[in-house]
Amino acid sequence: MQEARVIPLQRTERNRRFTPPSTPDGPAVEPTPLRPEPAAPPVSPLRRGVADALAFARRRLAGDYQVDEFGFDRDLTEALLLPPLRVLYDRWFRVEVSGIENLPVDSGALIVSNHSGTLPIDALMTAVAVHDNHPGRRYLRMLGADLVFQVPVLGALARKSGQTLACNPDAEHLLRSGELVGVWPEGFKGIGKPFSDRYKLQRFGRGGFVSAALRTGVPIVPCSIVGAEEIYPKIGDLKAIARLFGLPYFPITPFFPLLGPLGAVPLPSKWHIRFGEPITTDTYDADAQDDPMLVFNLTDQVRETIQQTLYRMLTQRGNPFLG
């Protein structure tokens, strides 16, 4: 009996020793100094850059960074993934963005966009457009095809840059936690369509994105991208090779595979990205997502909005490469 009384005491003591501090990851509360110290002398930009790079390397080496449950690594995205994309965005495609005010300031929304260009560069450029133009510097959480997550390096990078599998549980989880979610419902049908079909929207899947928005009550923001169709004009498809590698298509463009790796450089078309008026979904009943006709109608409404905006933008556009 005596033993039985002593032991639990020991255990609670042991527990106490291992109790973690209550807010170990939260920001430390600094006391406000009565007489503020003189501001630190300015550091030259070069030194600042070197120090930032060293700080980044130290954080990475010590594993001292946060990753969310989808694997989104903000630190890595800011420091390593966005800068090269930004060069492409600013210098190569000279993207012009309008309608950024249609994105919510800090709540969830589903951005639905047309898909084109053989490789999903339009998705990456939309992510840069949202992050660099939104006043809150928000991140676009993209929903990708399962093919992306099956490919070794690509799958890991996609997760780290905040993408996740295009399935309803993931989409709803992100929307509920107030994220901006991007979806390209045309999928491979849109991105791999021949150049002659450019700017003609394909079927919008089964409307899964609409039911995700209905279930979470977030607005749908239609997004129209002009310019991405011209980066790799797909004039043919080597079906046999595609089947060999398990790909949905193997494109032939005027320069690829003719010029080899050089042909894989995207053509420098001038891009316009327009975020349209949000379509609200919180005015419907709680079980609206179980009404297939409503889901179909909403899907068509989103699709028509994007298609009409595309036609309007195309009539205003001059030369595809000069804008």
Binding site: E69, F70, G71, D146, Q150, L165, C167, P169, D170, H173
Partner: peptide, 12 residues
């Protein structure tokens, strides 16, 4: 796996 949702709930 690559086709699993990122976050599993009890009903999966």
């Amino acid at each position: 796996g690559p086709r699993s949702p990122a976050v599993f709930t009890e009903d999966d």
